[in-house]
Write a protein that binds this DNA or RNA. Structure first.
Lengths: 206, 206
DNA sequence: TTATTTATACCGACTAGTTGGTTTAAATAA
DNA sequence: TTATTTAAACCAACTAGTCGGTATAAATAA
C-alpha cells in the first residue's frame, strides 16, 4: 500500500492559500509554495500538473467550504425559528458571532484575491466563484421573498439586493480590516447587516 | 525648452492602472505597461526609477482623487441642507447617483488590488491607503456624532462603524459587480447604505 | 538670420537573474 | 510492489533594470 499523499496535497494547498492571500497568485511562485510546505518540486508536480490546476483546486475547496458555511448556518437558523424574518436575523447573528473575538491572521477571501487578478485565471475557475455568489443570492433572496410576503419593507428594496448585501459586506470588511489591521471591524459590520434587516422589516416599538 | 513629458507620464500611469486592476501588480510587467502605452523601456525608466515608484505614484494619484471625491460631495451636501442627517442622506444619494447608469468597464479600487498583494509594497505605499481610509472614517464619523446629538439611533451603533460602512460597501460591491459582471449592482448597494441611515435615524411615518 | 548650446524626453539593445515547468534516477514506505 | 517523495539538473521565456545614443525644441550667441 502506498502512503497517504492527500496529507501532502492538503498542506501544499494550505501553504499556497496563505501565500496567495498575502501577495497574490502571480507573486506566489511554485518555489515559494514548496519552500513553505517543506517539500520538493517533484512532489508538487506529482500532485498538480500545473500551477493553474492548483489555482482551480484551491477555489474548488474554498467554494465547498463556503457552501457548507452558508447551508450549516441557514439550517441552524431555520431550526431555531419558524418565522422567516427571525430566521434571517438569527442567520445574520450567527455569522456575526463567528467573527466575534477575531484576532490575527486577518481574514481574507480567495474570491476577492482572484477578482483583482482576474485575467490570470481560466473560465472554469471564474465559473466556480460566480456560481457560489449566485448560490448565496438565490438562497437568501428566496428567504427575503418569504419575509416580504409577511412583513412589508419600510423602504423599496428587492429580495436580491438584500441577499447580495451580505457578501458585499464580507468582501468589503475583509479589505478594510486587513488594511487597517482591525479584525474587530468584521463582526461589527456584519452586525450592521443584521441592524438593516431588523429596521427594514420589524414593527417599530410601541 | 523640451517637450512636455507629463503627457507620457500620465499615459504610463493610466495604462498601468488599467492593467493592475485586471491582473494585479505582480503580473503587470514593465514590458506590458510600455506596450500598452506605446513607448519604450527608456521612456518608462526616464519617468520612474523603479516599478515600485510607479506603484507609489499610482496610489498617490488615486488617493488624491479619492480625497477630492469625498470633499466635493460632502461640501455639496453641506450646502444643500443645514441638518446633519439630511446632509448625510444627500451625501449618500450623491454617491449613489454617480454610479447610476454605470456600464463597462467595471469599477475597481486600487486599495483593494494592493490589499490582496500587500507584501509586494513598501510601508509608505500602505500608509497612503490607510490614511485615506481613516480620513473617510474621521470626516463621516464627525457627521454621525452631530446627527446622534439630535436624532437618537433606533439601534445601538457607533459613529465610526456607520462611517466605515460606506467604504465597506464600495469595496465589497466592486468585487461582486466585477465578478458577476453586473455594474448596476453598484448604485443599488450604495442605495442600501442610504436606506440604512434613513431607517436608523428618521422618525417613523406618522 | 543662422549656428550652437542646453536640458529634457525618449529609444532599444542588452544584462543578470527568475519564472513555470520538465525530466531523470534513486529512495522511501505501506 | 506500487504509490509517493527526494534531489538535482535543465530549459525557454520572461523579469526588472541599465546604458550609450538620439530626437526635440527652446535659449543663446555670432
Amino acid at each position: 500500500m502506498p502512503r497517504d499523499g492527500s496529507i501532502t496535497r492538503t498542506s501544499i494547498m494550505d501553504s499556497a492559500q496563505q501565500l496567495i492571500l498575502n501577495q497574490g497568485f502571480s507573486a506566489t511562485s511554485v518555489d515559494s509554495v514548496i519552500e513553505k510546505t517543506g517539500i520538493t518540486k517533484g512532489a508538487f508536480y506529482y500532485h498538480f500538473d500545473t500551477k493553474a490546476e492548483l489555482a482551480l483546486a484551491l477555489v474548488e475547496r474554498y467554494a465547498a467550504l463556503d457552501h457548507e458555511h452558508l447551508e450549516m448556518n441557514m439550517k441552524q437558523a431555520e431550526e431555531l425559528s419558524r418565522d422567516p424574518l427571525q430566521q434571517m436575523l438569527i442567520f445574520a447573528g450567527l455569522l456575526k458571532a463567528e467573527m466575534e473575538g477575531l484576532v490575527e491572521p486577518f481574514p481574507g477571501c480567495l474570491y476577492a484575491s482572484y477578482c483583482y487578478e482576474a485575467q490570470l485565471f481560466t473560465e472554469d475557475t471564474h465559473q466556480i466563484i460566480e456560481n457560489m455568489m449566485l448560490e448565496w443570492r438565490q438562497r437568501l433572496s428566496a428567504k427575503f421573498s418569504e419575509i416580504m410576503e409577511i412583513y412589508p419593507p419600510k423602504l423599496e428594496v428587492t429580495p436580491e439586493s438584500l441577499a447580495d448585501m451580505i457578501l458585499v459586506i464580507y468582501e468589503g470588511v475583509f479589505i478594510m480590516s486587513k488594511t487597517l489591521k482591525e479584525p474587530a471591524m468584521t463582526a461589527v459590520q456584519l452586525g450592521q447587516y443584521r441592524n438593516y434587516i431588523e429596521l427594514m422589516f420589524e414593527k417599530p416599538a410601541a
